[in-house]
């Protein structure tokens, strides 16, 4: 079965492990992800605060191409891309003016029949069933499921229930034997787009998330957004500065865990791309300080 795939800049840039793991997970579930041809920027962060029509046309072009390729659904693993594509599709459906003016801008016909899936939608719809009997003792770890802002909000757009305290990742992880903690920071802001301009703010916001997850006994933070993951993983310098102590709790993509459950190796899942190391091999869950020290030089490199 073929499903469309919109990687966005992150999955081709800072989050190759997300792309690799997602593709292998899809393969394990007998799904071929077809990348949208000649895709362009979704317009995240900048376009919608500058020009409404631009913020609709950029994502709509991608959707129109996907439609043209004969795809009925498209997976959008980045939460920011997901939000922008969903917004554009919604505006297209609701606003007649948008429908009338869009075509000359994107120079393609767009019907608006395509369905947009975020990574959780995708996993629930196509992968959950394949996860039967995948409970593995090596996963007996506590996860802090972190959703960030755009995966569940705004609820009017995403149709989420319990957008302040979602439980979807928890349900998926339960399938492979990972229990999750109950915590209050699931949908807090990680600092997102301020990653480069104001690393100190990211340090503070992500720091609070990391601190709470650790205080509540989580062994790892599980994410489904490349922005969240990069802030929580890569900005440890700023985070540790804010918290005034070193923190070794790893932040990992949900698809990397699912991939392991399907029997792929940690190398396949590109665990080496994570700044804060994590390993489930030989039932030797390690995110210990020795490893962290090894990685510290790396952390310092990216500290702004």
């Amino acid at each position: 079965m073929k499903i469309g795939y919109f990687p966005g800049c992150s999955l081709h840039g800072t989050a190759p492990e997300y792309e690799a793991s997602l593709k292998l997970v899809a393969k394990a579930a007998d799904i071929e992800l077809v990348e949208i041809e000649d895709w362009n920027c979704c317009g995240a962060t900048a376009a919608h605060s500058m020009n409404r029509m631009l913020s609709i046309a950029l994502p709509a072009r991608n959707l129109a191409i996907a439609e043209k390729m004969g795809l009925e659904e498209v997976v959008v693993p980045c939460a920011a891309c997901y939000s922008r594509l969903l917004f554009a599709l919604n505006e297209f459906k609701l606003d007649e003016k948008v429908r009338m003016n869009l075509q000359p801008i994107i120079e393609t016909e767009f019907k608006g029949n395509i369905k947009i899936l975020n990574v959780l939608d995708f996993l629930e719809k196509y992968v959950m069933d394949a996860l039967k009997n995948k409970v593995d003792d090596k996963f007996k770890k506590k996860a802090a499921c972190y959703y960030g802002c755009l995966l569940v909000r705004p609820p009017k757009l995403t149709n989420s229930e319990r957008w302040d305290d979602p439980l979807r990742m928890e349900a998926i992880l339960k399938k492979i034997g990972i229990d999750s903690i109950d915590w209050s920071f699931k949908t807090e802001c990680c600092g997102a787009g301020l990653s480069i301009a104001r690393t100190d703010i990211v340090g503070k916001l992500s720091g609070k998330i990391i601190e709470d997850a650790k205080d509540r006994g989580a062994d790892m933070i599980v994410t489904a957004c490349p922005m969240c993951q990069s802030n929580l993983d890569m900005r440890r310098g700023a985070i540790n500065n804010y918290l005034k102590k070193d923190n070794n709790i790893p932040a990992i993509f949900i698809t990397q865990l699912i991939g392991l459950a399907f029997g792929y190796s940690e190398k396949d899942m590109q665990f080496d791309k994570l700044f804060v190391p994590i390993s489930f091999s030989n039932n030797n869950f390690s995110n210990n300080n020795d490893n962290l020290k090894m990685q510290k030089s790396k952390v310092k490199e990216v500290k702004v």
């Binding site: 319990r162 957008w163 302040d164 305290d165 109950d182 209050s184």
Partner: peptide, 8 residues
Amino acid sequence: FPEYGYGK
């Protein structure tokens, strides 16, 4: 009130 913890 989800923001105040759904009564938990």
